[in-house]
Amino acid sequence: MPPIDPPVDPPVDPPADPPADLAPSASVPEESPEGRRLPAPGPARPADGAPGIRFEKVVKRFGRNVVLRELDFTVAPGERVTLIGPSGSGKTTILRLLMTLERVDGGVIWVGDRPLSHMPRGGRLVPAGERHLHEMRKQIGMVFQQFNLFPNMNVLRNLTEAPVRVLGLSRDEAVERARRLLDMVGLADKIDAHPSQLSGGQQQRVAIARALAMEPKVLLLDEVTSALDPELVVGVQDLLRDIARDSDLTMLCVTHEMNFARDISDRVLMFDRGRIVEEGPPERIFEAPAEQRTRDFLHAVLAS
């Protein structure tokens, strides 16, 4: 775990930034690729470290329903951030935007010092094409609520298919990596099993291994224990705690498990209706929430 001191109140956009009505086609100040870097707290990280993330006035609509309205927030490199809030508050949408499963309707998402949702062209930012998305997705991995293992492949191929086809690893390298990861998630004996032969908890641990096999630098966890039977939740959470402890991944986590959120996160963001209501270190958010909305939400979640 790198020493990070996440700001309770993240720095707002540097004054050099474009004006507030930044649209997808807003011009990028050409002279300042440096100036566009994330306002990362702490010392600069080596180029191969985990990137930070910055949402800049991000808007997402589904039809007439505005899910995110000009959302600004920053995640420092290597920081672990948990998003909490009632359903429909936009938490999962944030992860889906980062995984490029949805497109932004306004604003820009930055990963490291490069735009994720857009690509620079002729000094302007235009909506990203498939090639740019492919390039940016190399850094990002995601684990889903419903596991989403591929039923047409056994466990081993679920773990090796993308490293071989996408990263260009040799079959042997990919198998070696898969064995190591299956060992880590405690499922070395299931290497030839079919996903349908595994319990939910086992499937989710395979899904975590599958995401890690791509060696992402940002890991997105979307309610990864919500679909599990209660007695299987602990195993998956323990695994993720280990991963959080032993890696320097930037992690964004949506969860309703407050104890888990407390254990793994540096900072908790409380969302309501597409806005951040409150944020801070988990101890403060869970023990002394300042906002009534946060208190109501935590009360409801802990009562259930």
Binding site: H134, K138, F144, A162, R165
Partner: peptide, 25 residues
């Protein structure tokens, strides 16, 4: 659709998504 999304998350190209994930199913 979740299968397609998992394939995107693993950075398969559109052709690979179709050929390796969607079509076999």
């Amino acid at each position: 659709r979740a299968q397609y999304e998992a394939a995107v998350a693993l950075n398969f190209t559109p052709w690979q998504r179709m050929l390796r994930v969607t079509l076999p199913q």
